[in-house]
Amino acid sequence: MQVLANLVVLTAIYALISCGYVLIYRVSRVLNLAHGELMMLGAYLLFTLASLFKGGPELAFAGAVGLSLLVGFVLYVVLMRKMTGELVIAAVLVTIALGILLRGLMVLIWTARDLHPISVLGWKNPPVPLGGGTSISSVALATILVAVVLYLALMLFFRYTRWGLQMRAVGERPLLAAQRGIKLHAVYALAWALSTFSGGLAGMLLALDSGLGSTMVIVGLKAFPAALVGGLDSLLGAVVGSFIVAAAEILAIHFIDPLISDVVPFVVLIAMLLVRPWGLFGTKEEIERV
């Protein structure tokens, strides 16, 4: 039972992170390999704001979430915008470089020590019993809820709003979309903002649950196989992929060796890439477009 609960929590965490990869990839075919660092940045922002607004933890949290949104927007406008029209792989390399840059800056600003935003916010994280001797932490429960709400919201957004429609159009044929008067840069900027928003949220929840340190980048990187297994341009795929990767990881930890947990997602990834490179729910044509 406890295993099952852990599985759901891990799936929620991966899903929350991997939707950031999907959002950007779907719209611009760029894989943002700085996502782990951006996640961490969100968590650090929460820590700083929490120290600033000692009295209002809710305010600090809301502020950090808002700032994460802004970070993505700014990043697109000052950096990634220059890469539109360049080779996709060049843009991916830029995100790798961005990741290094961010990591350096974060160590400079916040040092490499492990931080615990939850104690600064003054919140508690009591375990929630689920019956049958199983329990998960309150933050983990919140993570599951946030993931569900976020995915529902995003799916509705893509399905029913004009911005969502424009994002889908741009994702398929950016040039044609531009010709039809859709503001490409605005759409891309929105995708980046939403991506850092969801990533930042994931980072904050993760930091609230288990502290804030350099391992977060690895968690971010591990969520990327989840996005790819499901199909990089599908939100539903990201959920399913997260579940598969989480399941494989938990099984491996239980039956093989806890040390292996960092590798399992990548083994799943390779298996998937060799069998069905475009993922479970992805569009097949993508592979040839690289």
Binding site: L165, R168, A169, E172, A177
Partner: peptide
């Protein structure tokens, strides 16, 4: 590449 193939006619 004159239409969005993954969208419906209405979209």
């Amino acid at each position: 590449e004159k239409i969005f193939e993954t969208l419906t006619v209405m979209d």
